[in-house]
């Protein structure tokens, strides 16, 4: 797709820069929102990196509503497991990630062949 962009008179470098700006701005907003919930520490990003990564994979790479649904799904799954089987509340999201990747690697709402 990136190769086709110049033919369509899109400037890939240009688009990429704006994408990166948007991609950096959005976590900033979510960071402001999360600070009230989780508290602040300089390394908090590393703990959130994997869950958000998993949300993207479960929802489907390249799909915004998918990511939202994915985030909701893993959040609810982890919350429910914490009630019934507390020891597995963190492992369960990785099990979900493995199941999605094995059965439907494009995720719930992702497009076929996004990452291959």
């Amino acid at each position: 797709m990136r190769e086709n962009a110049p033919g369509l008179r899109l400037r890939p470098a240009h688009g990429r820069r704006e994408l990166r700006a948007a991609g950096l701005a959005e976590p900033r907003v979510s960071g402001v929102l999360a600070a009230g919930q989780l508290g602040l520490e300089p390394t908090m990003g590393t703990g959130l990196l994997m869950p958000s990564f998993i949300a993207i994979i479960v929802g489907g790479i390249g799909s915004l509503p998918g990511t939202l649904v994915g985030g909701l799904l893993i959040g609810v799954a982890s919350g429910l497991t914490a009630v019934f089987l507390p020891a597995a509340s963190e492992a369960v999201i990785y099990v979900m990630m493995a199941v999605v990747l094995l059965l439907r690697p494009r995720g719930l709402f992702g497009e076929e062949g996004m990452m291959s």
């Binding site: 597995a88 492992a91 990785y94 990630m97 493995a98 690697p105 990452m115």
Partner: peptide, 26 residues
């Protein structure tokens, strides 16, 4: 092995983390 490229790396992370939490919680 049914997955390739990025997906291979991600599945290995997922299984690896499951083992990590088993060792951590048991």
């Amino acid at each position: 092995v049914r997955r390739r490229g990025v997906y291979f790396a991600m599945v290995t992370i997922a299984f690896g983390q499951v083992f990590y939490y088993i060792a951590f919680q048991w």
